[in-house]
Design a protein around this nucleic acid. Structure first.
Lengths: 216, 216, 216, 216
DNA sequence: AATGAATGAGGATTCATTCAT
DNA sequence: TATGAATGAATCCTCATTCAT
């Protein structure tokens, strides 16, 4: 392995690890992924992993952050093109952005219960600050697209959307074993499509917001 | 230990185990609870646990079912007293029922990612059927309280509420280590109160539903 | 593996583990012995080890206790046969008992720095109490053999002997690599024989004690 | 970092490392000290450490040598002032010198089991030779203060003292966890004070030596 | 001489589950 | 039905040391 001396080379190595993590997450999920697998896949020694990330959770949190940043950008772009107060279309666009980043919802689903539990307090603080900045910025953009949103409502809406993503993903994604069970016609009402459910709920939410005149 | 021969005695023993599980969940959470702890607390041997439940997850799923049943009853009662189309009050009442069963949201939060992953297919089927029945029944009641709900919308709403509970609980419950971080004034916007957040979102959702004229 | 149900069978299994530990200690020493090696050698699964001993250190502390008990008995027997105030012979006999238990000194040498560091406080207390009892009992016997020992001096002498054993063993036992170095004729003065050194020092100590008229 | 080109500058850097090691040993002990900590503290890079010392053990052996040399000088000075055959006072003075170098006993305690195990054979030889010289020199001085010491007895006595230091330190220094246990009044007899125990034993040893007429 | 990125061996411990009694 | 002894898989992380730059 060539030594990553320059800032650039280090960044590239970090990227390689995250790429391995992305691959692992898609195939195996967080729990089933071992640091050893990651190391092999990234082409580094196990110890080298810990030069770049303090814990396993930190690796996947970094992955989440990367996905999240990409998503916010995607959202920003989508919002720009949108007319004002087209809340239904807006909901659709948001759902679309998530379909283009299928890794984001399952990562969000373990964010609070797993990822945030074993990174340092410093890393946590940094992540949360970053999150707040992103939410605030995109929240402000959101406020320009929905006239019924008061100042600060944009961020609130995004936070709520975040919760919605987690909840819908959980509700719509049965365990592998549960898949078969839910296929039964009798249980059809319990079968949800993540994207659809999210979009529908979001439409209702926005509609409600519009008619409520704020205060949430 | 006297042998539990009669159906009654067996049921009592099962209850003792679930009581231990409830206590353990409140104090330690699912992951930190060991079958050994449960056995000691329930006054049985470790092996005996497996006469009553096939897996650790099954124990906590049973606990969840118990909590869920109690909750549905609570909801039914609350709904009965409610005037028609008092959606804001209804949201408040629903949030209240959850505050009276603080164990339900955190159990729901691990339902799909943990509990359902390691029980037999049979148990899963049985649980899902039970769930559907409960949701349908209470959903029907709900439809009598909200005139804008079409047939089947009650169940759909409850399912959506379920997702909301999970999402809000995740978003509002930081890891112990994260607690301190979120206390910082600068991060106040990221600090959510579960019950409040749930209620607010629900209000918006219902309001939206009312104005949308169905179709979700 | 047959299950060790009876108290007896359990004791036998414990013995088997300790036998494996004794073998391992002689061959590999504490640090180089792994719990895996121990388990294989004892014919049990790794987890089973932890049914009998809470930590690796606890295994070897148990071994030490066993050696120590045997040693105290050996000492008691040796003392019985001895005439009064034959301090030089007594020193020789004591050195002999140690030569018959070659495992004791090297175990003592890591007692305080290693073994006592990772067993529970309860186990530590129990060990120390046991040690005190043993030391007091044999100390009393010692006082009957050496007329110049006041009440309590027997225990004190044994404690001092304990320190001597540790010190002499360290000083007389060079690291494997150091063996060759010390063989050089020029370094002969640094070459010590454990048993001889211990005996000589003990003779001096006793002689000094005899002439000092107590107070130590 | 400026390059240490001159012999002097190199020596200074070596000193800085040893100063860091001394600090680390006092605070953390050998095992808990990492080369990284040492490097940071000494203001050099990790790799630089290995330009000055071949292994971690070599660092602390060098520290030990330094302490030992200082100690021998201290002893020489103390002996000079002493009248002949004041063996009790002499024991007291020796104990004093150790109290003034509190780092020496714990370093001696790991000398044979740890430090000497991972330095090259050459370093070992050099250390042992140095030790022998020191012991011989100061041993000769000792022989002038104690008339009952034959030629060579001085060195022998110092070697024996070395073993005593190690043994007493082990016996008197319980593991942190053991501290509490030994505080119990019932276990008071097992509680030793290093300096006191060493001095008392030394007094007895010298007294015995005096009366024995040599031969040890 | 100095750096610091890379290495990779190494091991105790937990705990859900099984099954002989 | 109850027990509890036995199992054994499963893995994160540390850190002394090396060596390319």
């Amino acid at each position: 392995m060539p030594r990553a001396t320059s800032h650039n080379a280090k960044s590239e190595r970090r990227d390689a690890i995250l790429a391995a993590a992305a691959d692992a997450f898609d195939r195996l999920g967080f729990a089933a992924t071992s640091m050893e697998w990651l190391a092999e896949r990234a082409g580094v020694a196990k110890g080298t992993l810990y030069l770049y990330f303090p814990t396993k959770e930190a690796v996947f949190l970094a992955l989440y952050i990367r996905e999240l940043d990409a998503w916010f950008e995607r959202v920003d772009q989508a919002l720009e093109k949108l007319p004002v107060d087209a809340s239904t279309r807006l909901a659709g666009e948001l759902a679309d952005t998530l379909q283009q980043q299928p890794r984001l919802p399952p990562l969000a689903a373990i964010l609070h219960t797993v990822l945030e539990r074993n990174i340092g307090e410093a890393a946590l603080l940094s992540f949360r600050r970053h999150l707040l900045t992103r939410i605030s910025t995109t929240g402000a953009v959101l406020e320009t697209r929905l006239s019924f949103l008061a100042a600060g409502d944009g961020a609130r809406l995004l936070l709520r959307l975040h919760a919605l993503i987690i909840g819908c993903w959980h509700a719509a994604t049965p365990a592998p074993i549960a898949r078969r069970v839910v296929e039964r016609p009798e249980l059809a009402p319990l079968r949800l499509d993540f994207s659809e459910e999210l979009e529908n709920t979001l439409v209702l939410l926005l509609e409600g917001w519009r008619h409520s005149g704020g205060g949430f």
